[in-house]
Amino acid sequence: MALTREQMAQRVAREMQDGFYVNLGIGIPTLVANYIPEGMEVMLQSENGLLGMGPFPHVGEADADMINAGKQTVTARTGASIFSSAESFAMIRGGHIDLTVLGAFEVDVHGNIASWMIPGKLVKGMGGAMDLVAGAENIIVTMTHASKDGESKLLARCSLPLTGAGCIKRVLTDLAYLEIQDGAFILKERAPGVSVEEIVSKTAGKLIVPDHVPEMQFA
């Protein structure tokens, strides 16, 4: 079975470490916040200018002046700080964020990522995504392995305009966890019940399959 969005978030959350500063993108990455392991302290960064994002406000307590990068009303946790967008991107560009999780349309074997534009169809802008992928050392991309029409999103070369070049090393899809190295995807883990053959058939870029590919475990 392909992973649910919640399971993808759970799997990504295992990459967290105590004391990490983490930036979570919109969509599945946002859900990762719900699975931070018990007893671990993590500070979430929101690129509009908030370090230490807390949960959504209680009903009736939302404040228009307190939002995250997805423009949702949020709270600040104890130990949070708030600053300008220039300061925020100084943190990002300067490599101070320990882990960045974001979605994508396509990723390729060279570590290129396309996530912000489909020519002629969708023009929303890149927001902070280009800064995030250029500034972070430790990035996990979350996306479905193939489009609804069955087209692979793990390619030999991205077909859409890039968000960043040569910056992605790790991808979690609904079928597999993969790393990118020396011009190939390396299959590291597969979703429970998903065969290596299925992953091979849905990966357009070069894929290296080790002898043993463990299944992800979920409680």
Partner: peptide, 10 residues
């Protein structure tokens, strides 16, 4: 007015 774009609550 301070309009809220995405009201999200617990």
């Amino acid at each position: 007015e301070k309009r809220i774009e995405q009201l999200t609550e617990r």
